[in-house]
Design a binder for these strands. Structure first.
Length: 563
DNA sequence: TCTGATGCGTC
DNA sequence: GTCGGAC
DNA sequence: GTCCGACGACGCATCAGA
């Protein structure tokens, strides 16, 4: 290590390799903690950067910066550097099962011809990646690739492996935020709870590690909630059953679960901002929501949360519509007419100071005191109180919710504080039982990582009135290791064609697929597709003539719409 | 100027 | 979003 | 219980290239 030029990227790569070589969380934590401590001692300015890079990120969570490079562009850049065709890279990637490993192999060959290189530093890698995010406009893809090319040309094969994975933000060394938090706590001898809280409130583990080292517990405790700065929303777990969940809480506040977009709304002085679950600012896309807030809530600093849905004649309509609104930049006024929004508020995080430690029961009361309801535009979530004795209140809410075209119910612990970014048992969700269809496998796509040498996703079809097969969805989740293997073995002899990572398969294997909802599809031959498809089992007991039909799908889709 | 591929966010 | 695997 | 990483559909923005 050279103190003038900063620490070499290779040192970080060694850490990645060590992390990858164990599956034990405690070991990973110690590896990271040791490294953080080392950086803290030798090159403290690098600590926030290294913390982010260890997570496989270039920017902190709250940042709106993005690289605009994913697998395809990256493959092109790799092809350029290695002097091969992009298709060769794709083949290699399929065989290696991972773009990082493919990069390592490709550059390994190339490197033998290279004479010498200037060693990469962590700083250099990070600053070049940050530069990529700033490039836009004409020839931007080319310029981005030039930066990658420069990095690759001075990278060792092993370094290239992790640069590619970092660009894709998929480091895949088994380290996520939980492990990083533990490591920061261990490295700088602060309590884990304090690290956790600081992270909740800032969404910036780089900052947290820096403060932990420089100012310790005192510094971390000073970080706090501020209107204008979004925090990660508290998340819900699946409820195993309404009664069981309510009993476990003692009593519960149950609310309709609306099928829309979760938003966190901040008022800071004169400014109102609306953030999504991943902390993206969508204020410009939903001007009417800002207006409703101006009208219905106090002109004081606050943070509230709710769900935005689309309604027609006061009734909720398909989730697909709201996707037309969230990230829109153009023709906003026009869409505002066509796709009207409604906001249901259900929580408050800040009002006359932080309220996240206030029990939910009381937060709700505060929220109620803040809001002047606007019919059809802004309301509080529909809420009932349920105890084990009158569990029917919750059960009725559930059936009413589904009948009304909503998604189910939330079951909330009245005593719980608001825990940003935590998915715990203080807030549960209960949705309708999924439906199932019997579909035939007509193709597939090879997977990555764990699924590198399997078909990681199956293309499925229904039959039409002429017994022709029409595609309707891909399914990948729901397969355990054993089924993954068995299916691969069944499918292998049926493959008729391979193009890149995709294969075509003689139709014969039938899968039972669960799904939450049928949706209109611009992509699949049947004109429909499935929301949240899950593989349940292989149907060896029926034959291909028995699979479900386009007609059936169509009739079920209409049922859903007319609810 | 238009279209398809790609990226990236929502669920 | 769902799910399975590892701890 | 918790964390992590496999993977699903859709729609808008952006950019390359016809």
């Amino acid at each position: 290590m050279n103190s003038k030029d900063g620490m070499r990227y290779m040192e970080l790569v060694d850490v990645y390799e060590k992390l990858d070589s164990t599956t034990k969380r405690l070991e990973k934590t110690t590896i990271l903690a040791d490294f953080f401590r080392k950086i803290g001692g030798e090159d403290p300015e690098l600590l926030p950067v290294v913390t982010l890079l260890s997570l496989g990120r270039v920017f902190p969570t709250w940042s709106e910066e993005e690289l605009g490079i994913a697998s395809k562009l990256l493959m092109n850049a790799m092809a350029l550097v290695a002097g091969v065709r992009p298709e060769d890279v794709e083949d290699m990637m399929r065989d290696a099962g991972d773009i990082g490993t493919a990069a390592e192999l490709l550059l390994g060959k190339k490197k033998q011809a290279t004479f010498f290189t200037v060693p990469l530093t962590i700083q250099k890698v990070h600053s070049n990646l940050m530069k990529i995010a700033d490039i836009s406009g004409n020839r931007s893809q080319y310029k981005k690739m030039e930066i990658l090319r420069e990095l690759f040309s001075s990278a060792s094969p092993e370094e290239a492996k992790y640069i590619t994975r970092t660009v894709l933000e998929e480091l895949r060394v088994g380290v996520g935020e939980g492990t990083i938090k533990d490591a920061i706590a261990e490295a700088f001898s602060v309590e884990k709870g304090v690290v956790e809280r600081a992270h909740m409130l800032t969404n910036d583990l780089g900052l947290v590690s820096e403060v932990a080292k420089e100012e310790g517990v005192e510094g971390l405790k000073k970080l706090s909630l501020k209107p204008g700065k979004p925090v990660k929303p508290m998340l819900a777990q699946l409820s195993p059953g309404i009664r069981e969940s309510v009993e476990e809480m003692g009593w519960a506040l149950c609310e309709t679960k609306y099928d829309g977009i979760r938003v966190q709304i901040h008022r800071s002085g004169d400014e109102v901002n609306i953030f999504t679950r991943r902390l993206e600012n969508i204020s410009n896309a939903v001007p009417e929501i800002i207006e409703y807030i101006e009208e219905a809530l106090p002109h004081e600093d606050f943070i509230v949360e709710g769900e935005i849905i689309v309604t027609k004649d006061g009734k909720p309509i398909s989730f697909q519509y709201i996707l037309q609104r969230v990230r829109r930049k153009y023709e906003i006024e026009k869409m505002r007419e066509q796709v009207p929004l409604k906001l249901y508020l259900f929580d408050v995080l800040y009002y006359h100071g932080p309220q996240i430690d206030t029990p939910f029961e009381d937060r709700r009361k505060i929220l109620e005191s803040m809001v002047d309801v606007m019919e059809d535009k802004l309301q509080l979530s529909n809420q009932v109180k349920a105890t084990p004795e009158d569990i029917w209140r919750a059960e009725d809410l559930f059936t009413e919710s589904l009948k009304g075209g909503h998604e189910g119910i939330m079951i909330k612990d009245p005593h719980a504080p608001y825990m940003p970014g935590i998915r715990g048992k203080k807030m549960l969700k209960r949705k309708a039982e999924p439906e199932t269809l019997d579909l035939v496998v007509v193709g597939g796509t090879y997977g990555k990582g764990k699924r590198a040498h399997f078909i990681g996703s199956y293309l499925l079809a229904v039959q039409d009135e002429n017994n022709e097969l029409k595609t309707i969805a891909h399914a990948a989740t729901g397969l355990d290791d054993q089924m993954l293997l068995e299916l691969s073995e069944m499918v292998e002899p049926l493959i008729t064609k391979k193009t890149g990572r995709r294969v075509e398969i003689v139709p014969s294997i039938i899968l039972e697929i669960a799904y939450s909802e049928i949706v209109k599809s611009p992509e699949y031959e049947s004109g429909y597709s499935l929301r949240f498809p899950v593989v349940k089992r292989v149907r060896e007991d029926i034959s291909i003539e028995d699979i479900d039909t386009v007609e059936r799908v169509e009739s079920m889709f209409k049922d859903v719409q007319t609810l």
